[in-house]
Simulated assay, not measured.
Amino acid sequence: MRLIASDIDGTILGHDGTITQRTIEAFAAAAEAGVEIVFVTGRPPRWLDPIREQIGHTGTVICSNGAATYSLETESVVSSHVLSWDTVTAVKQRVESLAPHSHFALESLTGLHVEEGFLTPNRVSDAEHYAPVALTPDMADGGIVKMLAVLHTGNADEFLHLVRPAIGKLIAVTHSAPELALLEMGPVGVNKAVTLAEYAATKGIGAADVVAFGDMPNDIEMLGWAGAGYAMASGHPSALAAARLTAPRFEDDGVAQVIEARLAALHLA
Results as ranks from 00 to 15, higher is better:
L98F: 03
L109F: 07
T89Q: 06
H113W: 00
Q93K: 07
V95K: 02
D86G: 09
R94W: 08
V114L: 05
S102P: 10
V114H: 03
P100Y: 08
A99F: 07
S97A: 15
V114S: 03
Q93E: 12
L112T: 15
W85H: 14
A90M: 00
E115V: 01
F104A: 06
F104C: 03
V114Q: 00
L112S: 14
L109Q: 15
V95C: 09
F104H: 04
H113I: 00
L98W: 01
W85C: 15
E107K: 05
S108Q: 02
S108G: 15
K92F: 00
L112E: 12
A105E: 07
L109K: 09
H103S: 13
T89H: 03
A99H: 05
A105S: 14
L106A: 12
E115Q: 07
A99G: 06
E96S: 15
H101I: 08
D86P: 01
H103A: 13
V114W: 00
A105R: 01
G111I: 05
H113L: 00
H101T: 10
V88G: 05
L98C: 05
W85P: 13
E96K: 08
A99E: 14
H101R: 10
Q93R: 09
H101A: 11
L112K: 11
T110Q: 14
E107I: 02
S102G: 12
L98I: 09
H113R: 04
A105P: 11
L109E: 13
L112Q: 14
E107F: 03
T110Y: 12
G111K: 12
E96A: 11
E107A: 11
L106S: 12
E96Y: 04
D86Y: 01
D86Q: 10
S108W: 02
T110L: 07
T89M: 02
V114M: 02
E96M: 11
H101V: 03
E96Q: 13
F104M: 02
S102Y: 01
H113D: 04
P100R: 02
L106R: 10
T87E: 13
E96C: 04
D86S: 10
D86A: 11
E115C: 08
K92I: 04
A99W: 02
W85K: 12
H113C: 01
L112N: 12
L106G: 12
A90R: 00
S102T: 10
A99Q: 13
E96P: 06
D86I: 01
Q93N: 11
F104T: 06
R94E: 12
W85Q: 15
T87N: 09
A90Q: 04
A105N: 09
S108V: 01
G111R: 12
E116L: 11
S108R: 04
V114G: 01
H113N: 12
T110W: 10
L98T: 03
Q93P: 03
A90C: 00
D86N: 09
L98R: 08
A99N: 06
V91H: 05
S97L: 13
W85A: 11
S97E: 14
A99S: 13
S97V: 06
T87V: 15
E96H: 13
E116W: 10
W85F: 15
S102V: 08
R94H: 06
S108L: 05
S97G: 15
A99R: 10
E115S: 06
E107L: 05
T89Y: 01
E116A: 14
D86E: 13
L106H: 11
R94G: 08
Q93G: 06
K92A: 08
K92E: 07
P100F: 07
H101W: 04
S108T: 15
Q93A: 13
S108I: 01
